[in-house]
Amino acid sequence: MKRTDAVRAAVQYAGLVGVLMILILIFGFASENFLKAATFVSIANQIPDLTLIAVGMTLVLVIGGIDLSVGSTLALSAAVLGVLMADRGWSLWASIPCCVLTGAACGLFNGAVSVLARIPSFIVTLGMLEIARGATKVVTQSQTKYIGSSVEIVSEPIAGILLSPAFLIALAAVLGGQFLLSRTVFGRYCIAIGTNEEAVRMSGIRSAPYSITVFVLCGALCGLAGLTYTSKLSTADPNAAIGIELSAIAACVIGGTSLMGGRGNVISSFLGVLIIAVLQTGLAQIGMTDPMKQIITGGVIVVAVLLDAARMRWSDRKR
């Protein structure tokens, strides 16, 4: 039993880790600067926002929903952080809860409206994408809020381990998210809801509280991402993270999460984030232009999903 579990897990991650290794090798050969500690430290300190959002997105996708408002939610949370710290002079520790709660509130709106009114989350969160972005501009009066060093510490590498608190927060979110999904009753319900909500209902389980909680969690993770994003730039930018929802969805999909719900893995999504980040950094190092980077990244997403589909067909046939 234990052994098959381990084998299954190894097979599950082997493909993604393999792709990651191949990319690293390719860039290692193409650029003499790539295989250096500095590259990896830079990648690690660059990805916390996308990682945090991909964790939330994975959970939302697992229950059969989608959250398009993650970028705007991030920006609004960051704006609250910026206003509190830059304009009101609040400390970092006092501001972080407000920042996270702002994200959670956006998630609560998304979850409550889509679940209770039975409106597809695609539409509700599309509305939220506009609402939160607009609110961001109201809160900041469309100004970039410069905070400075008090927030930068979140993204500065901790002496000795070279990793930033932001990266550690993101890593904790990945491990926690995967634990939630695979080991808890809550996670089981999420997978069940995404597979067949009516069967869940007929099994005597109320799905609404779980679905709403997932959106709230996703929102709160966006709030945390707002913190890490802000700390990287030391400013709260009202135009932050536009389009990050698509990168997050791409990371989840590369990781094999189903857009139809019921199937997803947070660690795989994290590997998806790493693949995207390595690709971006590597392409930049070998001197690709931005348009070429976009084309190649897009191509990699499609190929990854094709490979995943082939893997699923193969394991279906084996069953």
Binding site: R188, I191, A192, T195, N196, E198, R201, G262
Partner: peptide
Amino acid sequence: KSNGLLLPLSIRF
């Protein structure tokens, strides 16, 4: 199929 079982998931689940 429609409301009795979670067909893609395992027997245990």
